[in-house]
Nucleic acid binder design. Structure first.
Lengths: 276, 276
DNA sequence: GAAATCATTCTCATGATATGGAAATAAAGA
DNA sequence: TCTTTATTTCCATATCATGAGAATGATTTC
């Protein structure tokens, strides 16, 4: 063992190794590092891992076996490959259960509100509606407000259209077939062609605009948030009086919201569609 | 502090606890045990965990912190709760990537759901259980739902029986020996002969029916998916309220699911048993 | 507002326990 | 067949995790 001579070694002198994660339990660090490598490479062999980490093969083997005993890894004796196990899947999925969109999104909404000065919202899609989950209100005296749990029309809301934009035209048509596209204001896109045309733009741009389509005098900018399957399950938006959100502001805030949505996607363990 | 019951607590007794998983690295055993508890309980506090495991709080805290540093756990300072972290989710999902099932099956499930109007599922077999991997929910207001990662009884689920039907009677007997076939409803096939008789039919038909055998009012239709060795590693199904799946519908949807399962098998580079 | 409870962060002596060299097996080449 | 390479098991050694203890801060309870 490379003894780092002299005294310098702080009580818990962590190996000089590559592992940047600060921590305190060596076996765990090493094991989880192995687990990560296996997960990221869709399987590895003992020697690969030993080489990769610089640990003794016997040590690596012991750790792998132990992880496997807990179902975190699986071992194919044929190929000698170690792969991620079911238990890891089960445990990982517990994440979804208390990944409350509400709580995770909160800091992101706060940042959005600070950056834009307008009320920020999260909403999900459910059975053809948009359901508002949570919001952070702007400090302005005149501001948008949606009560959590409130439903809104998917075709006439920034978040709704952002979500729709991730679907194919035929899927959109199917979802909306049967329903009539309710008319709210002179701006409402209440025909399928009009809606699809707007959605075309949203796809290209990455974020949607609700230009007084639901409420006169109110504009929204929104972008979609994806789940682990690359499906848009939610969206975030800012909304405020049209007078405070003129064209040039839209162009500035749009990308901000788009970026924030992507960050939220990541924070929730989701991924954008095309990747992978 | 006064150690409860003097010596009773085996000093470093290899395992004081209930944990039956054999292994060789103590820290790992303990840490993964903690991880499991957290995952199974939707979050726990330090004292809970210390009490539960009999470990010293300082030890538990050290392990939790270490796990958290790797993103396997997350900690909410507000509530003091420890919950499963994103990294665990990411790693767990590598399981699916490896088995390719998750992503490959998705479009097939979508098609099934569109064709039948009922929730479509994929699940794999693991240690005598069925583990649900992914699903596409029907749009109907009343619909079946299985959380990914959830385990179910192999003998009382459509997918479970579909998989069993590809095994020989002796293999089935062997797998189920020791276990008692849990009883869920009046329809549950909770004796081996009854189960084998049903499986006989499934073999002939190519698809299985779960006729309210697990949950009253719920029916499923399922068919097996094979790997490259011709072994059934998974199954797909649709599930919905019995009222929407009467006998005649079963006869219509059964073949659809059977065919879709075969296509999925092919898409994954698998093959049905007898060929070759 | 004091007491009680709980979480977090230190330190440290102890020895249980993870470690890696080496040897035994197994598998793959040649 | 004999090498070479990969995996697995063993075991003596000292590294490293452990848990008591104590101090602090944050809440909650009475």
């Amino acid at each position: 063992m490379a003894s780092q001579s002299t005294a310098a070694k702080g009580r818990r002198g962590r190996k000089a190794g590559e592992n940047a994660v600060p921590s305190s339990v060596q076996v765990l660090d090493r094991s989880l590092h192995l687990l990560s490598i296996v997960a990221d490479n869709d399987g590895s062999t003992l020697t690969d891992l030993a080489d990769h980490t610089g640990m003794a093969p016997s040590t690596v083997h012991r750790l792998l076996t132990s992880l496997a005993n807990h179902g975190m890894l699986a071992h194919d004796p044929e190929s000698g490959e170690w792969t991620v196990g079911v238990r890891a899947f089960e445990i990982g999925n517990a994440f979804l259960r208390y990944r409350k969109l509400g709580s995770i999104s909160r800091p992101f909404l706060k940042r959005l509100m600070d950056a834009c000065g307008e009320t920020a919202n999260v909403a999900i899609e459910d059975e053809g509606d948009v359901v508002f989950i949570s919001q952070i209100e702007s400090h302005a005296p005149m501001r948008a407000f949606f009560r959590p749990g409130r439903r809104g029309p998917i075709h006439a809301s920034g978040i709704g259209k952002a979500i729709l934009s991730t679907w194919s035209d035929t899927d959109i048509g199917q979802m909306l077939s049967g329903k009539t596209l309710a008319h709210f204001t002179a701006h409402t896109l209440d025909t399928l062609p009009a809606l699809l045309k707007d959605i075309q733009q949203i796809r290209a741009r990455g974020w949607s605009i609700d230009d007084e389509e639901h409420t006169l005098g109110m504009r929204c900018i929104a972008a979609p948030v994806f789940n682990e399957h690359g499906e848009a399950i939610a969206g975030i938006s800012i909304s405020g009086p049209a007078v405070r959100l003129p064209k040039n502001k839209l162009d500035v805030f749009g990308p901000v919201i788009h970026r924030t949505a992507d960050e939220l996607t990541q924070a929730m363990g989701g991924r954008k569609p095309h990747e992978l």
